[in-house]
Design a protein around this nucleic acid. Structure first.
Lengths: 344, 344
DNA sequence: GATTAGCACTCGTGAGACGAGAGTGCTAAC
DNA sequence: GTTAGCACTCTCGTCTCACGAGTGCTAATC
């Protein structure tokens, strides 16, 4: 049975109220704040109906109603209008990003800050592994007697480097030749496809520089082994301490623990495929530990793979604001990424 | 008036007990757990004396005693014996560090983890600004038509890099010449001394490559501007959530806020000069916000400057363990640093 | 003179009692 | 279908009270 217009009004009213106060909302409050032209008793009847349908629940007999997760879901699906950040705020973000675009880490950091500051929830950004980006070029750069740097540049302009030892006799020209060799062989390949076996063929190509090639190969595989897989950046974790639902220390502890161990959050965010903003409310989350939290997140396309970003907060969340913000930010990230990177 | 042997025994006994239980300890408990051959009444008399001297205090008339900060200070200064981590634990740390020594960030991360895991408090490591290290070499590396990387290597082997645009016509040889120019002019100087003014002289040296030199200069000053000053790495912040003194949400919040904003902690750690482990108990800390916390920390010498590292926990801290661990780790860091870096 | 046993006293803590307030559900009237 | 009225329910804060842990003091003992 679909909801009547009036029921929807009441549901929305209750949600808005509950989200801001964290208290069960009574029939009188609905009438008062919403200025609806009906009496409290009528509202009570409708509320009883809504509860029967599962959109509301009652903490105890003599309290007001609070929205159930199903209620939030209905709101999110049918009633919500995203509240996007003001032009001013967006402008501010653009501005802080512009001067520093060089360092991707920095960009991620700032975006996270923005997300968590605007929404007042914790934000997360999942950065795809560099292993998924493409090999652009490699250079071996002598820095002093017997030492050189292997510098690997990806198509996004990210640099990985590692120091290696080289024979003292080795000339810069030799190193250049070796570098070019790598470049010819590997350009355009995805880093994670660079198996040690594939690289071996290189080793045999130049017998007399074999040692250095070997060292460089070591360096590359070590770089790839050690470079993180997906990286998760969490910002504003402390925001959740404000939420009254976490005044229970145990709950708080559980949630903060999830945040502290980067690894955990990766498992919690679903592998999403949908376009646009996705929302997971409470128990919709598979993971036990965040069944009392909600996620609002979106994907963004980096050269190779999908990254994800969003906010995480209590079920009693300002979904409209979170969704609007995440939407805007994901669009901005896409923009940035399209202006970055190296030509193929 | 100096403490008698028996008073010291009692003080130590109370401290050990209080640290582990977080409850005021009564005269009976002292006799029982310490197995001292005196009666509770005697202990009571001694405790009254100790209180009068300021080493103990009483939360309320009918409770046991807890050590005052002065009491802890006495313990730390005269009674404490450091408890260093087991060989096994030290071995474990050495092991995790060995394979990855290439990346200083990683090393710091791991040391922080170790500290906080062993002590069960929050750990911090303050890494001196890279600006304080010395210029070792600079290279300008073409990566594709019209783009190059300015790569600056410090004496510790840390690399800073930034992409710049260059004229398409520019040859690799030209870039090398420019790089060498920088190297001759700057090798051995401290980065923070590289004022834009000093660099200007370079610009005029080669008129025809002026544009690139200019770009490289821009890149360097931008790198220096943007590279962080001191960096603070905090690990295990959540450990403090376990401590009963922070079951009050407001206190917890205050402390966690300090941890979240990296900047804050820098101001809190004293500029230390002493050799070995330093301890600041409660109000001995200048900063308002951590007057209920204690610091146990030590310095370590990196090539140029001093870094600091240690743990931060409640006043009711296992100082013996914290001090022992910090001492061991600082020694290990010194070792590592002495095996790193580039020759001058 | 130091130590100890005994005892009255203090104070925080937790359990139970109680009233106020908020909100509901139901019934009867509109 | 809507509304007013009213009895009922349940939470929350406050208060009281008894309990227990621990002290401080005094007088006896070593």
């Amino acid at each position: 049975m679909p909801l009547t217009e009036r029921q929807r009004c009441i549901l929305e009213s209750i949600i808005k109220d509950y989200v801001s106060t964290a208290e069960p909302v009574g029939s009188r409050a609905v009438v008062k704040k919403h200025g609806l032209n009906i009496s409290a008793a009528t509202v009570r009847n409708e509320m009883a109906d809504l509860e029967e349908m599962g959109y509301l629940e009652q903490p105890h007999t003599s309290a007001g109603r609070i929205p159930s997760e199903k209620g939030f879901r209905y709101y999110v699906d049918f009633l919500m209008e995203n509240e996007i950040p003001s032009d001013e705020q967006i402008g501010l973000l653009h501005q802080t990003l512009d001067d520093r675009m060089q360092d991707w880490n920095d960009v991620v950091q700032r975006i996270g800050h923005f997300l968590s500051q605007i929404t007042n929830y914790a934000s997360f950004i999942i950065v795809p592994s560099v292993k998924l980006s493409q090999f652009h070029s490699l250079q071996i750069i002598p820095i002093q007697e017997g030492q050189a740097i292997v510098l690997l540049v990806t198509d996004l302009g990210i640099m990985l480097h590692r120091r290696i030892n080289i024979p003292s006799a080795m000339q810069p020209e030799d190193l250049k030749i070796i570098g070019d060799l790598f470049n010819r062989a590997l350009r355009g390949k995805k880093l994670h496809e660079l198996k040690r076996g594939d690289l071996m063929v290189l080793r045999d190509e130049i017998k007399n520089r074999r040692l250095v090639v070997e060292k460089a190969l070591d360096a590359i595989s070590s770089l790839l082994d050690n470079s993180q897989d997906e990286r998760v950046v969490i910002t504003g974790a402390l925001n959740i301490i404000k939420e009254p639902e976490f005044k229970d220390l145990d709950k708080l502890r559980k949630v903060l623990t999830i945040f502290e161990e980067d690894g955990q959050l990766k498992d919690i965010i679903p592998d999403k495929i949908t376009e646009g903003v996705d929302i997971r409310i409470g128990k919709e989350n598979k993971n036990e530990d965040i069944k009392e939290m909600s996620l609002v997140f979106a994907g963004y396309k980096t050269a190779g793979e999908m990254g994800k970003m969003g906010v995480i907060g209590p079920v009693r969340m300002e979904y409209w604001k979170a969704a609007g913000t995440v939407e805007s930010v994901s669009r901005i990230i896409d923009e940035i990424l399209n202006h970055r990177g190296l030509k193929k």
